[in-house]
């Protein structure tokens, strides 16, 4: 098994530009997507692999937002600091660029990693579930060379992302198959065990 686990402190710059073939894509990224793109690049760059390999991603519950929510809210308040429907439409929705919508969609880390590495195979995006991610991988149509990844953004803006190439036998007896937590915990455990890319 090969794994990459990256962690970034709150406010720490994620060096995504250095890992992108098309650097213009970075404008679509929230912190989770940026961290995921970097971690996937560290795992996959230089490897020769079938672009149709299965790829499953788990996105952790987002506890931090970099969508400009406060900008929209401030622009949507009336003079009494209440919500104004008209100001929401006239000012609020224009307070952030339309591309911000991409930062709110949960399948974007998977989509951008797929674009960056030309991955065109079987896929899924699971929400906040270690067991769900492993269950999905166990149902893959192949037994080896399955790509899994996850990302987690914490309330303070710290972020972790993990990617691994696994075989089904790596996970068939995993205690995380019955674990109620998020998938980043799997990667921490594997990383602590020394399974590194």
């Amino acid at each position: 098994m090969k794994i990459v686990l990256d962690a970034y402190a709150p406010g720490e710059r994620i060096p995504v530009q250095a890992h992108l073939r098309n650097r213009k894509l970075a404008k679509y990224f929230n912190r989770e997507t940026a961290a995921a793109v970097v971690a996937a690049a560290k795992l996959l760059n230089g490897l020769s692999f079938d672009s149709r390999r299965p790829f499953y991603y788990e996105t952790g519950v987002m506890a931090y937002e970099d969508l400009g929510l406060d900008l929209i809210a401030d622009a949507s308040r009336d003079d009494q600091r209440g919500f104004s429907q008209q100001r929401f439409i006239d000012n609020g929705v224009r307070a952030v660029p339309p591309l911000t919508q991409f930062k709110a969609l949960y399948n974007m880390p998977l989509s951008f990693v797929a674009i960056e590495h030309g991955l065109t195979g079987e896929n899924a995006v699971i929400y906040a579930s270690a067991s769900g991610l492993l269950l999905q991988a166990l149902q893959a149509p192949v037994s080896t060379g399955i790509l899994i990844g996850c990302g987690k953004v914490f309330a303070d803006g710290g972020v972790e992302a993990g990617f691994a190439l696994i075989d089904k036998q790596d996970i068939e007896q995993s205690p995380f198959l019955n674990h109620p937590g998020e998938a980043i915990e799997i990667f921490r455990a594997w990383h602590a065990d020394g399974s590194r890319a």
């Binding site: 949960y106 998977l110 896929n123 899924a124 929400y127 579930s129 067991s131 269950l135 149902q139």
Partner: peptide, 26 residues
């Protein structure tokens, strides 16, 4: 027996059904 939420936008529910199909086959 287990649960999951797929959030793959417009294919979320069909991916969930694909997973369900494979779970029962196994």
């Amino acid at each position: 027996g287990g649960h999951s939420a797929n959030v793959a936008a417009c294919v979320a529910s069909t991916q969930a059904m694909g997973l369900a199909l494979r779970r029962i086959r196994r």
